[in-house]
């Protein structure tokens, strides 16, 4: 059970949040311009990283805001939390050294 720091509300229990999958997958500007393969890539293909992973969470039972989390999928250490639209912080691969 994780403790997650909501950028608006502070540290809260994981049960207040829901998971939103991999972060930084922007919806294509012009889907019609994409080939079936490219569109399928956007629809279905996600990373399954061992180590540092950028993902989205929504504080669904709190302020209901979406935000980004950088988490180590091995240790579950949350390395960084940042708002939607912000760039991922530059981090050493695998989390804090």
């Amino acid at each position: 059970m994780l403790n997650i720091e909501c950028p608006w509300c502070g540290e809260r229990h994981e049960t207040e949040f829901h998971y939103g999958g991999e972060a930084h997958i922007a919806r294509p500007e012009s889907p019609e311009a994409l080939s079936d393969e490219e569109w399928a890539d956007f629809l279905f293909m996600r990373k399954n990283s061992k180590g540092l992973f950028f993902e989205r969470w929504c504080h669904s039972n709190g302020c209901r805001r979406w935000f980004n989390v950088a988490r180590n999928t091995v240790t579950h250490e949350i390395v960084a939390v940042y708002k939607m639209g912000e760039k991922p912080p530059s981090l050493v691969k695998g989390g804090k050294s």
Partner: peptide, 13 residues
């Protein structure tokens, strides 16, 4: 409602 919020917050702010 979550779905609407997701698009408003993450795709079309």
């Amino acid at each position: 409602l979550d779905w609407l919020e997701e698009y408003l917050q993450t795709e079309w702010p």
